[in-house]
Design a protein around this nucleic acid. Structure first.
Lengths: 195, 195
DNA sequence: CTCCTTCCCTAACAAGTGTTTGGTAGGTTA
DNA sequence: TAACCTACCAAACACTTGTTAGGGAAGGAG
C-alpha cells in the first residue's frame, strides 16, 4: 500500500507528537503542517485525511507491540516470568512509541465505535486475554496470591503500565528497564517491608 | 455569583457525562444541549460559555476532594494509615464524581497552560506534596521498604488510583471501598505470596 | 388585568475546520 | 531539449464551531 519514503514517516512522527501533546480532536491539520514545515493542504499529498494519519500511527504501533507480545507468550515461560517479560516489553514499547501509546491511551475508548478503528477492539480483547491468562495461571500454580481479584488486578496493572506514557521521557533519569524493574518490584512484593 | 438552582446543576451533570465520554474538545455545545433536552443557544442562559461549564465541573470536584484530603492529612495518622485513608477517599471521590475525575485525568495536562485553569497546577502541587510526604514519612519510619524509588512509586499510585475513573461504574460488581481494599492489598503486600 | 421574571426557542453571525483544486519550482529520465 | 514525477504552495470550498440577539410562552405578583 504505502512505500513510505522518509518524508512521510517524518510527518507522521511529527503528527504523533502533536496529537499526544494536545489530543487528536484539539489538533488542527494546520498545526501539524506548521510543525512539519509546510502548509495544511500539502499534507494531502502524503495522506488521504487527518484520520488516516491517526490510523497509521495507531496500527503501526499495535503491529510492533504484538510482535513483541507474541514472542513473549510463545516462549513458554512460567506465569511470573511471563508477567515480568510483558511489563518489560510494555515499558520498552513506551520508550519507542511514547506518542503513539499516549494517543492510544487517550483516544482508543471512543474510537472503538468507529468501524475504521474496529481493530482496536480486537487488540484490546487479545490484550485482556494475555494478561488475564497469565494472572490465572499464576494463581493456579501458586506463583501469585490465591485471594487476588484477577480482573481488578488486571486493570490495575494494565492502567499503571500504559499511563506511564504520559510522564515518561526517554532522556529522563530512569531508563525503561529501570522503571519496569521498580514497578515489578512494587507489584510483586508490595511496598510494605517483608517480615 | 451563581445561586445554582436545580436545573443548572442538572445541565452541569449532563455536560460532565458527555465531556467524560467524548472528551471536552470533541464535544459540541449542541450535543450537550441535546442531552439536556434543549437547544444550543439556550445553554447560554445558564452559563457564560462552554469553558465556564468545564471550569465549574472541575473546581467543584477539586473543592470537595480537598475537603476530604485535608481532613485525612490533619488527622495525625501514621504513614501507612494515611496512605490507606487517601486511597479510600480517592475511590470514594471517583464514586461520587466519576465524570469529573475522568475529565480531570484527561484534560488537566493541557489546561494547565491556560491562566483560567491555573488553579489546577496548585492542586497538582498540593497533591504531590501530600502523597510524596506520606511515602517519605513511611520510608523514614520503616513502614515502607527502604529501597523504594519515592517519585516512581508516587506516580504509580497516583495514576492507578485516578485511572480507575475510566472503568469504574457505581452499579458494578465492586463497591468503591472493595476496590480500594483490593488495591491497597496489592500495593502494600504485593501480588506474590508472602513466604 | 398588567407587569415582570424565568426559561427556552429561532435565527443568525464570525471564526475556524478538514479538504480540494489548480498551479509550479526543481530534479530525473529519455 | 522535452517530458515527467515529486513535493510543495496559494486560494478557495463547504461545513461545523461557539456564541449572540431578539422574541415569546408560562406563571406568579401587584
Amino acid at each position: 500500500m504505502s512505500a513510505a519514503p522518509q518524508r512521510r514517516e517524518e510527518i507522521l512522527a511529527t503528527a504523533a507528537e502533536v496529537f499526544a501533546a494536545q489530543g487528536y480532536n484539539a489538533t488542527t491539520v494546520r498545526e501539524i503542517a506548521d510543525a512539519a514545515g509546510m502548509l495544511a493542504g500539502s499534507l494531502y499529498y502524503h495522506f488521504d485525511s487527518k484520520e488516516s494519519m491517526l490510523d497509521e500511527i495507531l496500527s503501526t504501533f499495535l503491529d510492533e507491540l504484538w510482535a513483541r507480545y507474541d514472542a513473549v507468550l510463545a516462549a513458554g515461560l512460567g506465569p511470573r516470568e511471563t508477567l515480568e517479560a510483558l511489563v518489560i516489553e510494555s515499558f520498552r514499547e513506551i520508550d519507542r512509541h511514547r506518542a503513539a501509546v499516549a494517543i492510544y491511551q487517550r483516544e482508543s475508548k471512543h474510537l472503538l465505535a468507529q468501524p475504521r478503528f474496529g481493530y482496536l477492539a480486537g487488540s484490546q480483547a487479545q490484550f485482556e486475554k494475555a494478561w488475564l491468562g497469565t494472572l490465572e495461571r499464576g494463581v493456579a500454580t501458586e506463583a501469585f496470591r490465591a485471594d487476588l481479584d484477577i480482573r481488578l488486578t488486571y486493570r490495575f496493572v494494565r492502567d499503571t503500565v500504559w499511563v506511564a506514557a504520559s510522564w515518561y521521557r526517554p532522556d529522563g533519569p530512569s531508563s525503561a528497564e529501570e522503571i519496569a524493574g521498580q514497578y515489578l518490584s512494587t507489584v510483586l512484593e508490595g511496598i510494605a517491608p517483608r517480615a
